[in-house]
Amino acid sequence: MAQICGAEVDEEGFLVDLKDWNEDICKQMAADDDVELTDEHWDVINFLREYFEEYQIAPAVRVLTKAIAKRMGKDKGNSKYLYSLFPYGPGKQGCRFAGLPKPTGCI
C-alpha cells in the first residue's frame, strides 16, 4: 500500500487511519498536487477537521459551502472560492488534505 510520510493511504490517496494525520502529511499531499498551502487553505482544512470531530462525517460540498459562509462570510462560502483553493474539489481534495475520509456520497 502507498504511503505518505510513513502513513498508509488508500488507492485514492486518503489516509487509512485518520489518527495518522499531521501537518507534514497535509503539506506533502498538497505538494504532490502542486498546491501551495496558504492561510486560506488552512482555514478550510481546520474547519473540515473540526466538523469531522463534531459530527463524525466529512461534509457534503453543499453543506461545507453553507457552513463556511456562515462561519467566514459569503465571499468565502461559495463554490468558486473553494474550488480556487482546492481545484480537485473542496470535498474530495480538501477532505483528503485534512485527513478525513472521502465525503459520503462523493463519487
Binding site: E54, Y55, Q56, V63
Partner: peptide, 14 residues
C-alpha cells in the same frame, strides 16, 4: 466503535 450518534446532529445541515 464509531460514535455515529454525533452524526444525527448534522442532519439539519442536510
Amino acid at each position: 466503535m464509531k460514535n455515529f450518534s454525533k452524526t444525527f446532529h448534522a442532519l439539519g445541515d442536510y
